[in-house]
C-alpha cells in the first residue's frame, strides 16, 4: 500500500478531495453531487494553469513559470476583442499569443542562460504591461456564443469541466504516450544524461515553455468568458490554487515526474477547500492563513520525500 501511494501520488489529492467533500457536507448539513460539480467547475482555471505549470516544472532545474497569470489575462483580453470579429480567429489568436509568451520564456531561458524563474518574472512584467497599455483599446466583454457554450451543463456537470477533462486527457496522451513526453521527463531528471542519450535538450525545454504558455492562453479564453469579461487583475486569484495544485498533485519540484491526474484533483481539492472554509463561515484572513499553512505543510511533506529517494 505504501509503495502504491509512493508511485501513484495522485491518490493524496483524491483522498483530500473526498475528506473535504465530507466536511462540507458536515458543515452545511447537506451532502450531494452538486457541490462537487460546482467545485469542479470553479477548479477549471487552477487546473489548467496547474497543468501548464506542471509541464514547466517537469522540464527540470527547478524551473517555474511566474508569468502564467499575466499570460492568462492578456489572452482573455485578446479573445474577447477578436471574438467579436470572428470566433475562430479570436480563439486561435488568444492561444497563439499565450504560446508566444511561453516561447519568449523558453528562448530567453535557454539561449541567455537566465534562470527560468527570473526569465518568467521579467517576461511576466512585459506581458502585464502590454495588458495595461492595450486594455483601453480592447473589448473586455466576452463573446455571447462562447458564454452560452461554457454555461451548458450535462446533468450538473459543467461544460467547463468537460473541456478541462478533454484537455487533460490530450495532455496525458502527449506526456505519457509520445516520444516528446518521454524526452521531457528525461530532460527533467538529468539534462546531461538526456543530452548523451541523444535528446535535443534545448528544443525540449523550449517546447515545454511554449506548450505551457498555450495552455495558459486557453485558460484565459475560458476565464474571460466565465467571469463575464476580462479585467487587469483577473489572473491573481488563480496563482495560489494553481501552484498548490501543481505540487499537491505530485509534480516533483526538481523535475522529471508529473501527474496529470494528480494536478487535476489537486485543483479540485483546493477548490473544495475554499468552499469548505467559506461554508465554515471563517473570516477571509483566517481562510487564507489555513490555506497557506496547509500548502506549506503539503510542500514540506511531498517535496522532501522526493529528494530523499
Amino acid at each position: 500500500m505504501k509503495k502504491f501511494a509512493e508511485r501513484h501520488s495522485f491518490i493524496w489529492p483524491i483522498l483530500g478531495s473526498l475528506i473535504l467533500w465530507g466536511l462540507i457536507g458536515l458543515v452545511s448539513g447537506r451532502i450531494g453531487m452538486n457541490q462537487l460539480y460546482t467545485c469542479a467547475k470553479l477548479a477549471t482555471f487552477a487546473a489548467l494553469l496547474g497543468l501548464a505549470q506542471m509541464i514547466v516544472v517537469t522540464s527540470g532545474d527547478g524551473a517555474i513559470d511566474l508569468s502564467q497569470v499575466y499570460t492568462l489575462t492578456l489572452s482573455a483580453y485578446i479573445s474577447c476583442t477578436l471574438m467579436s470579429v470572428d470566433f475562430a480567429t479570436g480563439m486561435v489568436a488568444a492561444v497563439a499569443i499565450g504560446a508566444l509568451c511561453g516561447l519568449a520564456n523558453g528562448w530567453v531561458n535557454v539561449y541567455f542562460r537566465v534562470p527560468a524563474m527570473i526569465t518568467t518574472l521579467a517576461v511576466g512584467y512585459i506581458v502585464f504591461s502590454i495588458v495595461l497599455i492595450s486594455a483601453p483599446y480592447m473589448k473586455p466583454l466576452p463573446n455571447a456564443a462562447l458564454v452560452a457554450f461554457i454555461n451548458k451543463n450535462f446533468g450538473g456537470i459543467s461544460m467547463l469541466t468537460v473541456v478541462t477533462v478533454v484537455a487533460a486527457v490530450l495532455l496525458a496522451l502527449l506526456l505519457y504516450k509520445t516520444k516528446y513526453g518521454k524526452q521531457l521527463h528525461a530532460v527533467g531528471q538529468n539534462k546531461l544524461a538526456a543530452r548523451y542519450a541523444g535528446v535535443s535538450v534545448n528544443r525540449v525545454v523550449m517546447v515545454a515553455f511554449t506548450l505551457a504558455g498555450a495552455i495558459s492562453g486557453f485558460a484565459g479564453v475560458l476565464c474571460g468568458a466565465f467571469i463575464g469579461g476580462a479585467f487587469q487583475d483577473m489572473g491573481s486569484t488563480y496563482f495560489l490554487p494553481s501552484i498548490a495544485a501543481t505540487f499537491v498533485g505530485g509534480t516533483v519540484a526538481s523535475g522529471g515526474r508529473s501527474s496529470v491526474l494528480g494536478v487535476c484533483f489537486g485543483a479540485l481539492m483546493m477548490s473544495l477547500m475554499s468552499t469548505f472554509l467559506n461554508a465554515a463561515n471563517l473570516a477571509p484572513g483566517l481562510q487564507r492563513l489555513i490555506q497557506g499553512a496547509f500548502l506549506v505543510l503539503i510542500l514540506v511533506a511531498s517535496v522532501s520525500n522526493d529528494s530523499k529517494s
Binding site: 527547478g62 497557506g292 510542500l299 514540506v300 517535496v303
Partner: peptide, 19 residues
C-alpha cells in the same frame, strides 16, 4: 527543500496572518 517553493508557500501564511 528548494527555497523558492517554501517561500512561495510562506507568502500565503504571511498574507493570512496580516488579514
Amino acid at each position: 527543500i528548494p527555497a523558492i517553493v517554501v517561500t512561495l508557500g510562506a507568502q500565503f501564511l504571511w498574507l493570512g496572518m496580516a488579514l
